[in-house]
Amino acid sequence: MALAPIDLRKKIVQITLEKKKLTHVEARVGIVLDITGSMQTLYKNGTVQEVVERILAVASKFDDNGALDVWVYDTHFSRLPSVTERDFKDYVQNQILNNAAIHKFGRNNEPPVMEDVIRKYTVEEDTGVPVFIIFINDGGVVKPIKKVITAAAVQPIFWQFVGIGHSDFEVLKQLDTMEGRIVDNANFFHLDDIAATSDEMLYDQLLHEFPSWLKAAEEKRIIRR
């Protein structure tokens, strides 16, 4: 019997984890989705749903309850119900596009949603377990995110920014060289077309810098493993 796409992706994630010596790591996994106006086509054509499913495979391997926490943002943000293997089908349509309460397709403002991510994992649910946040963005981010990331370096949260599309991502490209942090807690890579990127390449890039952050964060006693 052919494997379902989610099961195939979990196999690819497992291979990636073995390659990067991450098979024994437990982590909370969250995704922050840009829902500004320029993202409208990617929501309507199913690309964002596909991204959620691809990242869910990572959460299924890292998180003991297999849940992927979800946020969307433009000038406002919404913290959405977590998604699991039981309910991922049509998640974007049902939870985001059909939800009139969600502010969508406006301009971008990242710090408020980032502060809510920090609040969830360090105030509301402070477990000490590492947190892996995948932040999908298709354009410029506001410069104050640098201040948020610098202040959050003491928290057990790693921020993996993924730029999609054809913007210059000037601020995000500077993340690796930002000074004044106890550990390097953020990484960025750019994909012109995320839908055309293979699962193997996506997972390899997503998990490229997470291992070195885990090591540094453990040495600085930011996380307990």
Rank of each mutant, 00 (worst) to 15 (best):
L3C: 11
A4L: 14
L8V: 14
R9Q: 13
K10R: 10
K11D: 13
I15A: 15
T16H: 00
K19T: 12
G30Q: 08
I31L: 06
S38P: 01
G46I: 10
V48K: 03
V52T: 07
V58S: 02
Y73N: 01
H76C: 13
L80N: 11
D87A: 04
Y91N: 03
Y91W: 01
Q93A: 14
N94E: 07
L97N: 01
N98A: 15
R107I: 11
N108T: 11
N109L: 10
P111A: 01
R119A: 13
R119F: 02
Y121W: 08
D126S: 15
T127Q: 08
G128M: 09
V131C: 12
I134P: 03
D138S: 09
G140H: 02
I145V: 13
K146F: 13
K146A: 10
I149Q: 02
T150G: 03
A152L: 12
A153R: 04
Q155M: 14
W159D: 01
G165P: 04
G165F: 09
H166G: 15
D176P: 07
T177P: 06
G180N: 11
D184Q: 10
D193Y: 15
D193K: 15
I194P: 01
S198N: 12
S198Y: 07
S198K: 07
M201K: 14
Y203P: 07
H208F: 00
S212C: 12
W213E: 08
K215W: 06
E218H: 13
E219V: 04
R225I: 00
